[in-house]
Design a binder for these strands. Structure first.
Lengths: 188, 188
DNA sequence: GTGTTAGCCTAGATCCCCTAGGTTGGGAGG
DNA sequence: CCTCCCAACCTAGGGGATCTAGGCTAACAC
């Protein structure tokens, strides 16, 4: 009887792929075990419980997205940087819906501290530096940008835009235009 | 043996309350039956299945929010209308987190058509009329506003803002200011 | 009073999560 | 090469959720 060679890392990567295929809500320990040809009880030597699995997928996704966003941002500034960052965000959400959904939930304090609040906000602040907003306005702008990026991708993923003929990509481009204009004319 | 007097309407209202208390993810047919002192199998004469229950809660929430938003909008225009609508949206989400979460999921085509895409977008367009945007810019602005409102409330509910000392209400007010400015200086 | 129907029941199949405890493969050390 | 040991994987089983099939009865219609 050959062993499956499970490790937490392999499990989490497979879980993330599974979530992208069947949806984050349908990510179960049983299904993951099935994918490895193993009994579900066997996974509990590598994972504390199902919630632990979900959190690890969330951490993986946050790290992947941060890497992508950092690459997209490299060597860019101003509107270029804004658009590159926003597109990296939205593209990742479209390519990896399960991973993206994982990022939204959970967020136990420690995890949120290590992952989300970290690089994500820093990169947004790096973009905003070009627009020279004083505090606390920069913080407000960070929140506005995050809200808009997340809201747009979430509504798009939920199918909220497909009832109107207007092309979604065009609306997205116009939204980024508008945000750039807004940051340039930020109300004092 | 007295009957519990169940009806789909009573069940859905109770389910919405239950979702607000324990979270939409923890809304189960079993828990709902328990609340009525009844066996879970008994609910399946009133509901097709668990998904049906969730969808009905979503429809209820969409209708309630539309009513509130319509009241808030009555007799207002311009920035007043924008702020009133946005606050109605965010306040509802904070008061009824379970109902709000229900609104996001599901969205089978028919349901989305009857509820969400309906009054919600119409009200947003009513607000935007004061800013006199040509098509397709008005559609893009509708999507931008929806995205920002939803994104902000979702991130706030998930605790995404509590890692920074800046007051969330202040950021929200500033965000609405900024959106008003943006709509007044919409890039052509 | 008799029928009909709707409201609620029990029983049971299936799936998921998770624990406790047993077995075995494969590498480390003699 | 042999032994020991640990990590990897197993079986068994409890608890909870979803949902179906089929039975009983309260309440209303006639």
């Amino acid at each position: 009887m050959a062993r499956a060679g499970l490790t937490p890392e392999r499990l989490v990567r497979a879980a993330a792929d599974l979530a992208d295929e069947v949806g984050f809500d349908n990510l179960t320990v049983s299904a993951l075990a099935r994918r490895f040809g193993v009994k579900d009880a066997s996974l509990y030597s590598h994972l504390r419980n199902a919630q632990d699995l979900r959190e690890r997928v969330a951490v993986l996704a946050l790290a992947e997205l941060a890497d992508r966003a950092a690459s997209a941002l490299a060597g860019r500034a101003g509107k270029d940087a804004l658009v590159a960052f926003a597109n990296a965000y939205r593209d990742y959400a479209k390519e990896h819906p399960g991973r993206y959904a994982a990022m939204q939930v959970d967020l136990t304090p420690e995890i949120a501290a290590t992952s989300r609040a970290g690089r994500h906000s820093e990169m947004t602040r790096a973009i905003l530096r070009g627009y020279r907003l004083p505090e606390p306005d920069e913080t407000d702008a960070v929140r506005l940008l995050h809200s808009t990026f997340h809201g747009f991708t979430a509504l798009e993923a939920a199918g909220g835009f497909r009832h109107h003929p207007r092309d979604t990509d065009a609306s997205w481009a116009k939204t980024l235009d508008a945000l750039h204009t807004l940051l340039d004319n930020w109300p004092s």
